[in-house]
Design a protein around this nucleic acid. Structure first.
Lengths: 145, 145
DNA sequence: CATTTTCCTTAGCTTAGGTAATGAGTTACG
DNA sequence: CGTAACTCATTACCTAAGCTAAGGAAAATG
């Protein structure tokens, strides 16, 4: 557990927050499927990673309230990107699974995202990119803590 | 300029995108001043860094449309966080400057942000945090490219 | 059983952004 | 010069994506 009370760490924390929020806003504009919101994409990504989940689990994982997830799941189902089945043990819950179509879309969109980030990252040198790549998994862990 | 076409880099890019978007959403909830939106905070940060700017410049820097910046600036002025003066050479434009009150608020809120991020980062070990700290300025540069 | 709790959903609202259209000021060109 | 074209900020209206509050059904608990 790092001690984050030093001036350097405080500065890093500030830089991190500012950069994450600004980058996040720019990423929102780089939708691969114009009709899908960032959170909806994120849900598909989560399902691809975790297999299947109930709406409540998804809401917790995406840090979104249950009613929001209800609408997201309904929309994804209407687009054929997600399948809903009854929960085996609990008739209140449902099980959400991503379809092959969603898989294909995620795979196909990876190239487009890469293209945009590559274009932006052209302003970085090799060393800077190495630092970023080393930090990527950490940032991902942080986002899920 | 790094070559981002390798599999490892593609994976890093994906991790980066996912983490940034998820973290960004969580950061939105950690407002230090409940009445100020993340973008409004970001504008104050930009002004603190760059001194002063016109609404148009701010809109470009924050990747927001001019009408949105008009509203943001008006709100900040109403709160006394920003001062508006006529542009010396161009009577269409205005010059936006942050007040001492805004400076004080930014400084005061730094502790609160640190507290939240520290709490989250307790799940990281020393090595992970070092990687993140090294990447913070790079991420900030990336967000401004 | 009856009560409480949990899970999903429905309904209505809020907020932060965007687009289109306007008006004033500046620049470029005939 | 003076008019045409462009730029900056603004106004008015709209959309998207969340939220809270309230409900209804199923499960857990006494």
């Amino acid at each position: 557990m790092p001690d984050l009370s030093h001036g350097d760490d405080a500065a890093a924390v500030n830089a991190l927050r500012s950069a994450v929020m600004r980058l996040g806003r720019r990423l929102k504009h780089q939708r691969v499927d114009e009709s899908l919101s960032p959170t909806e994409m994120s849900v598909l990504g989560t399902l691809a990673r975790c297999g299947s989940a109930t709406p409540g689990e998804l809401a917790r994982k995406e840090h979104v309230q249950p009613p929001s997830m209800t609408r997201i799941v309904a929309l994804l189902e209407a687009k054929g990107l997600v399948r809903l089945e009854p929960h085996p043990d609990d008739r209140r819950q449902k099980v959400v699974t991503s379809t092959e179509q969603a898989e294909a879309m995620l795979e196909e969109s990876r190239r487009k995202r890469n293209a945009w980030l590559t274009a932006v990252a052209e302003g970085l040198d090799e060393d800077e990119w190495a630092k970023l790549r080393a930090a990527a998994p950490v940032l991902e862990k942080l986002a899920h803590l």
